[in-house]
Computed example of a mutant assay.
Amino acid sequence: MLILCVDDDRMVREITGDLLRELGHEVIEVADATSALEYLRHGDEPIDLLLTDVRMPNMTGYALARKAIEQRPSLHVVYMTGQEEGVSAPGHVLRKPCTLGRLESVLTHIERLQSAA
């Protein structure tokens, strides 16, 4: 699976990218929503999943997901957050820091959805 990983915190983004690669996925890491949308607009690769932080400067992960899905309607989205409560999102939400096992579980579920479609 090719995953676009978006987080404004460089360390979190790099660690998450490393975990995703350890699970056998290809990863494109970007630091903000604008860069992610630009990549989706001009990139030729078929991105399978958008993994985005919820709270980022200039645009939330929710707003990014809405715009990304407008560009690529079949795109799956997983949200990441450090908040303990009050996060409600359509789809999967991972709490940061995320364990390898939890990440693998969510990605396996999404892969099953993709293969069923």
Score class of each variant (00 low, 15 high):
72 R>T: 11
41 R>A: 13
65 A>T: 01
9 D>H: 07
1 M>K: 05
67 K>A: 14
104 E>D: 11
86 G>C: 08
61 G>K: 00
35 S>P: 03
106 V>E: 03
4 L>R: 00
86 G>H: 06
19 L>I: 02
91 G>H: 00
1 M>W: 11
77 V>T: 07
58 N>T: 04
15 I>Q: 12
115 S>L: 14
85 E>S: 15
115 S>E: 14
69 I>Q: 14
20 L>G: 07
7 D>P: 01
95 R>H: 15
102 R>L: 08
113 L>E: 15
76 H>C: 10
61 G>C: 08
84 E>P: 02
57 P>T: 06
115 S>R: 15
82 G>K: 05
35 S>Q: 09
92 H>M: 04
90 P>S: 06
33 A>F: 05
51 L>V: 05
26 E>V: 06
41 R>Q: 13
103 L>F: 06
24 G>A: 07
112 R>Q: 14
98 C>A: 15
81 T>M: 11
2 L>M: 13
36 A>G: 10
72 R>C: 10
37 L>I: 06
74 S>I: 04
96 K>Y: 07
67 K>D: 11
90 P>N: 04
102 R>E: 14
4 L>C: 09
8 D>N: 10
50 L>I: 10
98 C>H: 05
35 S>D: 06
41 R>T: 15
113 L>I: 11
98 C>G: 04
11 M>L: 12
4 L>P: 03
84 E>G: 11
46 P>A: 15
99 T>C: 08
43 G>V: 03
109 H>R: 11
45 E>R: 13
7 D>Y: 01
8 D>C: 01
111 E>K: 09
82 G>N: 07
48 D>L: 03
40 L>R: 09
89 A>T: 04
30 V>S: 02
46 P>I: 09
19 L>G: 00
35 S>H: 03
24 G>D: 10
104 E>S: 14
45 E>N: 12
35 S>E: 09
6 V>T: 03
68 A>D: 04
51 L>T: 06
59 M>F: 05
42 H>L: 06
31 A>E: 08
35 S>T: 08
89 A>Y: 00
107 L>S: 05
106 V>I: 13
33 A>Q: 01
90 P>D: 09
116 A>G: 04
92 H>F: 11
75 L>G: 05
30 V>A: 02
95 R>Q: 14
115 S>I: 14
112 R>G: 13
30 V>K: 01
74 S>M: 10
69 I>H: 01
32 D>N: 12
60 T>Y: 08
105 S>P: 01
55 R>S: 07
22 E>G: 02
57 P>L: 02
33 A>R: 00
107 L>K: 05
53 D>F: 04
90 P>V: 03
4 L>H: 02
91 G>W: 00
48 D>K: 06
75 L>W: 01
10 R>L: 10
106 V>Y: 01
97 P>W: 12
18 D>S: 08
10 R>F: 08
92 H>Y: 12
57 P>C: 02
100 L>T: 08
79 Y>F: 15
12 V>I: 15
112 R>E: 15
97 P>Y: 12
66 R>Y: 04
23 L>S: 02
37 L>M: 07
84 E>I: 10
56 M>V: 03
64 L>S: 03
23 L>Y: 02
9 D>I: 10
62 Y>K: 12
44 D>N: 15
64 L>W: 01
80 M>V: 08
86 G>D: 12
61 G>W: 00
40 L>D: 12
15 I>F: 08
103 L>Y: 05
41 R>S: 14
54 V>C: 11
38 E>Y: 05
53 D>C: 05
